[in-house]
């Protein structure tokens, strides 16, 4: 073993670099958020079938939107920060959609991850802030907390308590194709990109 040590160094360098390369998708993906976006773009994910309830208290499901592109975001209605921004961004999206050929082929869904607090009433009130629900924009919750967790987990959405009674959560637009698969995740303010994707998929 005359050169055992040198060989050892080489092996460690090789495997170490390989591990870091693998763990950061070629030194490009260092955060969980970018990792989840990359993964979704590479292999679209089916969504779990869960019962949803909308702002009128009526039962809906993602299957109801089959054949349409769904742009989905996550909020909780007590939020005074990101969720209000998310709301106005979806308001703009609805404007764009309803003034284009996309109307009827693309729907917006705002889903609360706090179903214990956000019932149909709270959802409706949140909707009012942005001009109310209509055929394009639906405000929903999964009444069972377990279902909510399953949904969040399937999309790798992480919600953490902020220590002041509120939550911190990923802010993004989740693009779901007409077959009901999550195919892309884009920045919450990337309205143009979301519309282009929707146009492509619809």
């Amino acid at each position: 073993m005359k050169h055992g040590g040198i060989v050892g160094i080489m092996v460690v360098l090789l495997f170490g670099t390989a591990a870091l390369w693998w763990g950061s998708d070629g030194f490009t993906t260092f955060t969980a958020e970018s990792a989840r976006r990359l993964d979704v773009a590479r292999s679209p994910r089916p969504l779990p079938a869960v019962a949803l309830e909308d702002q009128r208290g009526e039962t809906v499901a993602f299957e109801d939107f089959a054949g349409k592109v769904v742009l989905l975001n996550f909020v909780y209605t007590r939020c005074t920060t990101i969720c209000t921004v998310l709301g106005s961004e979806f308001e703009q999206l609805r404007d764009e959609i309803e003034h284009s050929e996309l109307e009827g082929r693309v729907v917006l869904v705002t889903l609360t991850f706090d179903p214990e607090h956000d019932g149909p009433k709270q959802l409706a009130r949140y909707a009012e802030r942005y001009g109310g629900a209509d055929a394009t924009w639906h405000f929903v919750r999964a009444p069972s907390m377990d279902d909510t967790r399953r949904l969040l987990r399937a999309m790798d959405v992480v919600v953490v308590a902020d220590g002041f009674g509120g939550f911190v959560h990923n802010a993004a637009i989740h693009v779901i194709d007409p077959r009901g698969r999550l195919v892309r995740i884009v920045d919450s303010d990337a309205i143009g990109e979301a519309l282009a994707l929707a146009r492509e998929l619809a």
Partner: peptide, 16 residues
């Protein structure tokens, strides 16, 4: 000398 190189390999492993 081999011990030294081995030491470097080991510390490198820990660093990675």
């Amino acid at each position: 000398r081999e011990e030294r190189a081995g030491g470097i390999a080991a510390v490198l492993l820990a660093t990675f």
